[in-house]
Lab assay of single mutants.
Amino acid sequence: NQASVVANQLIPINTALTLVMMRSEVVTPVGIPAEDIPRLVSMQVNRAVPLGTTLMPDMVRGYA
């Protein structure tokens, strides 16, 4: 089972991601792999991401 990136807090739209906003968790469906967390830092979300939501590739500008 692969860990995915999950929002550690509410992340408002257009917010640049920081390490404290994300955690890794084994979830279904699988989202962005946890090993990509360092790559996600400073990328912006293109929608509001509620606490506990799995980050999907289409939620992060420039990721996919």
Score class of each variant (00 low, 15 high):
30 V>C: 04
2 Q>D: 14
58 D>N: 09
61 R>D: 13
58 D>H: 08
48 A>Y: 12
7 A>H: 02
12 P>D: 14
11 I>T: 01
23 R>V: 06
61 R>V: 15
1 N>F: 13
41 V>K: 05
28 T>E: 11
15 T>F: 06
54 T>K: 04
36 D>S: 10
57 P>S: 15
54 T>P: 08
64 A>D: 13
2 Q>Y: 11
18 T>L: 07
4 S>A: 03
28 T>N: 12
15 T>R: 06
28 T>C: 03
20 V>S: 13
29 P>R: 06
55 L>I: 15
61 R>H: 08
4 S>M: 02
15 T>L: 05
59 M>V: 12
1 N>D: 09
28 T>K: 15
45 V>L: 08
11 I>R: 01
3 A>P: 15
16 A>F: 10
36 D>I: 06
32 I>H: 00
37 I>N: 00
54 T>D: 01
40 L>S: 00
26 V>A: 07
28 T>V: 12
19 L>T: 11
18 T>I: 10
50 P>S: 12
29 P>Q: 05
4 S>R: 02
24 S>Y: 09
21 M>N: 10
52 G>I: 02
60 V>S: 01
63 Y>P: 05
60 V>M: 05
52 G>D: 08
32 I>L: 06
18 T>Y: 03
12 P>N: 13
22 M>H: 01
7 A>Q: 02
36 D>W: 05
48 A>N: 12
57 P>F: 06
17 L>G: 00
7 A>P: 01
29 P>V: 06
7 A>C: 03
41 V>P: 03
47 R>M: 13
63 Y>D: 04
47 R>E: 09
5 V>T: 09
41 V>W: 04
43 M>Y: 12
51 L>N: 15
38 P>T: 15
2 Q>I: 14
12 P>E: 15
39 R>H: 08
16 A>K: 07
32 I>S: 00
37 I>C: 03
9 Q>S: 09
17 L>F: 02
44 Q>A: 08
26 V>M: 14
45 V>Y: 00
55 L>Q: 00
45 V>G: 01
37 I>K: 15
36 D>V: 08
18 T>G: 06
12 P>A: 10
15 T>G: 08
45 V>P: 03
8 N>T: 15
62 G>Q: 09
53 T>R: 08
47 R>F: 07
3 A>I: 07
35 E>H: 15
36 D>M: 13
8 N>A: 12
5 V>S: 03
44 Q>K: 07
6 V>L: 07
